[in-house]
């Protein structure tokens, strides 16, 4: 895809998509969205990056092995469920903390951590697959 126009505009689009994906992920608890959709959008961004500037370049931009990101996602998702061991309740019981930051209170909760885990898994896996298919080469 050696098109100057595409290569120039792609990083911009990718950046917008990544921001959008995080936004969709974080507000998923209250409006449509969530970790899965967010992850898909982010992975699409990676796919566009891969198509515009090549898989190797995209991998370099990502820095971390995408599959490891996926592993990390499952890990923290499981970990967020394990936390309730300390509260004397069953697996995956949600724990909510409200952080007081000045005037607003920011909710921190295990479901949110869980959703971030989902995001990581989807992002990592789909990016890995898309980049592998794109690059034609084995991962480094």
């Amino acid at each position: 895809m050696n098109s100057l126009i595409f290569r120039t505009i792609a990083p911009l689009i990718v950046a917008v998509m990544l921001v959008f994906s995080v936004y969709v992920c974080l507000r998923g608890h209250n409006e449509p969205g969530g970790g899965f959709i967010g992850g898909l959008i982010a992975a699409s961004a990676m796919a566009i990056l891969g198509m515009s500037s090549g898989a190797a370049e995209a991998r370099r931009a990502l820095r971390i092995d995408p599959l490891a990101i996926a592993g990390f996602g499952v890990f923290i998702a499981g970990f967020s469920g394990l936390l309730s061991l300390f509260t004397g309740s069953p697996f995956m019981t949600s724990i909510w903390l409200y952080l007081e930051l000045g005037q607003t209170s920011v909710p921190l909760s295990t479901p949110m951590v869980f959703d971030i885990g989902v995001y990581c898994v989807v992002f990592g896996t789909i990016s890995a697959v898309a980049l592998a298919l794109e690059g034609g080469e084995e991962e480094p």
């Binding site: 608890h29 409006e31 449509p32 969530g34 499981g78 995956m92 959703d115 989902v118």
Partner: peptide
């Protein structure tokens, strides 16, 4: 603590499925 019931089901009521 969630307004999107579907998402709450996914991450809380039936979060285990999602895992």
């Amino acid at each position: 603590h969630g307004h999107n019931i579907v998402n709450v089901i996914l991450v809380d009521y039936r979060g285990f499925d999602t895992l």
